[in-house]
């Protein structure tokens, strides 16, 4: 995108500020942590992609991914978690996102927001009930890139990519949305 002399304007439009970008990421994190998945789905553009590669891969079809969700598969993912008894999410994961190191590459109508995220996750059995893999608090560390597009009066996610630090290692249950 060609930038104008004015630092806060890109091609005459108000650029995405760092404050706005952070607020966007914080809100997304809160929607996920509060399990407001239907609202989370609305953050994406219709052609938006949510991609968590399993290894370094130039595009989501070169190698199998951990998550490779277009709109339909995101909807399926939310349906599965909220409307069916998926054993791997029963009990469900609790998550807590920390968002940091936010950088903005302003553009119009698309902007790139880079961040580092740590997602803490636990499936608690509740009380004293335990089985293997329950009750263990796990950390996912990820480098994130949100490609946002200004559409219908708001910034929306055209592509969210998360490169997990342990993406090519043996990894356990990742059936929660992060």
């Amino acid at each position: 995108m060609k930038k104008t002399a004015h630092p806060e304007l890109v091609e005459g439009r108000a650029a995405l500020s760092k404050d706005e970008a952070e607020a966007f990421l914080y809100r997304e994190a809160r929607l996920l942590d509060e399990r407001r998945f239907d609202e989370w789905l609305m953050l994406f553009t219709a052609d938006g992609l949510y991609w968590v590669p399993a290894e370094d891969s130039p595009d989501p079809y070169a190698k199998v991914s951990l998550i490779h969700d277009d709109a339909l598969r995101r909807e399926e993912r939310v349906f599965r978690i909220t409307r069916t008894t998926a054993h791997s999410q029963d009990p469900a994961s609790r998550t807590l996102h920390l968002v940091s190191n936010v950088e903005v590459e302003a553009g119009w109508p698309e902007a790139v927001v880079r961040s580092n995220q740590i997602v803490t996750e636990i499936r608690a059995g509740g009380g004293n009930y335990r089985h293997y893999e329950l009750g263990e608090q796990r950390l996912l560390a990820a480098r994130c890139e949100h490609r946002l597009r200004h559409e219908s009066g708001a910034w929306r996610i055209a592509r969210k990519t998360m490169w997990l630090l342990n993406r090519d290692m043996p990894i356990g249950n990742l059936t929660f949305i992060f």
């Binding site: 199998v64 951990l66 791997s88 990894i171």
Partner: peptide, 30 residues
């Protein structure tokens, strides 16, 4: 490509199929 899509939907740690099998292995071991 079609096989790839079918595979990703059911297999892998974030998919909609195989993680439910793995949950059985954990309760089995317990």
């Amino acid at each position: 490509r079609q096989r790839f899509e079918g595979y990703e939907r059911f297999f892998g740690p974030s998919s909609f199929g195989s993680p439910d099998d793995v949950e059985m292995f954990a309760i089995n071991q317990t």
